[in-house]
């Protein structure tokens, strides 16, 4: 979206430049060639590229079940969903590139292990019910996070998120439908659904990031309207929306502290294991090594295709020059 070539490096305002903040406060959108503080640019490159990496790595746990989907209908839906996630990654890489970073740099950051991606994708998909749970909960949590990003102050990111959000709703609904089918099925099928919920519930709550008291980037991101809601408020919204859906399935949540607070109308929930979150994020989750190895292999296996495409393009260009 807009060429890096268009970036003609305007004079850069300071991080607390009142004119820049006034534009943000007036809900003006910042576009690629506009002057922006270096810290705003860096924050966005970090956030958008982490988001892109998450979409790409997120294809792996679900891709694991494409060949073993229980019916052609489920297989077609899962294939389309995983393809969408690849598309989301590409929209987001393109949005990050408008800030002056190259695609190759971003891919390199992921493959070398320097870049982060969502902790949730470092958990394994052990049964078919995990595919239902991911669509219902992981995409459900992603939607909660992404809807406010459609109004992000940075134009290309906001536009990419509008596209993404339009596609996400199908993801969540197909997941919930899988859960519904399992929960209306045999005892074993329902037990499978319950087991998947038990394993995924807490990691899904961690998807919203550290609690507000410990969230390092939150304040400036809110001031710059990159972020519109705090981690804790989005997490609460997600719990409030999701618990009734789970109860409708006849499932129980793996949290004895979960209860509806009659006075606030919100579902109160138990303590999240932030040590586990930090462990998984720093590389020590159940599947971190496997995920990165799969991405590295895919990239290495595709090298000859990229080389051939470049060679073909160069040959064609040379031919045109000679003619």
């Amino acid at each position: 979206m807009y060429s890096q070539a268009l970036n003609n490096a305007p004079a850069e305002p300071a991080a607390d430049d009142p004119r820049f903040q006034a534009r943000i406060d007036a809900e003006d959108r910042i576009e690629p060639n506009d002057a922006m503080p270096e810290a705003y640019r860096r924050t966005l490159i970090r956030q958008i590229s982490q988001h892109a990496h998450s979409e790409i790595v997120g294809m792996l746990p679900e891709g694991n079940w494409i060949t073993r989907a229980p019916s052609l209908r489920r297989k077609a839906a899962l294939l389309a969903k995983v393809q969408d996630e690849g598309g989301h990654g590409l929209y987001l890489y393109a949005a990050a590139e408008t800030l002056g970073v190259s695609r190759e740099e971003l891919v390199d950051q992921l493959l070398s292990g320097r870049a982060k991606y969502s902790s949730i994708f470092n958990y394994p998909t052990l049964s078919w019910a995990d595919i239902g749970t991911i669509g219902w909960l992981v995409d459900g949590a992603a939607i909660m996070n992404q809807i406010p990003l459609c109004r992000c102050s940075y134009g290309p990111y906001a536009r990419a998120m509008i596209r993404v959000c339009k596609e996400e709703s199908f993801h969540q609904r197909q997941g919930y439908e899988i859960m519904l089918t399992l929960c209306r099925g045999t005892e074993e099928q329902k037990a499978m659904a319950q087991d998947a919920l038990n394993r995924w519930w807490w990691p899904c709550l961690m998807m919203f990031g550290p609690p507000d008291t410990l969230s390092p980037h939150s304040d400036t991101s809110m001031r710059w309207k990159i972020k519109r809601f705090t981690n804790d408020s989005l997490r609460q919204k997600f719990v409030d929306a999701t618990v009734p859906q789970g109860l409708h399935l006849g499932l129980t949540f793996p949290d004895p502290a979960l209860r509806l607070d009659e006075t606030t109308g919100h579902w109160a929930f138990g303590e999240i294991d932030w040590d586990e979150f930090r462990r998984v994020l720093s590389g020590d989750g159940p599947c971190n090594r496997e995920r990165l190895a799969a991405r590295r292999k895919a990239h290495a296996d595709g090298a000859w295709v990229r080389e051939a495409a470049q060679a073909w393009a160069a040959k064609q260009a040379a031919g045109r020059e000679a003619a």
């Binding site: 807009y2 060429s3 890096q4 740099e105 891919v107 990229r306 495409a309 470049q310």
Partner: peptide, 10 residues
């Protein structure tokens, strides 16, 4: 090292 940049198209 990142590979050489491919052309970007709008």
């Amino acid at each position: 090292m990142p590979e050489p940049t491919t052309t970007l198209w709008e």
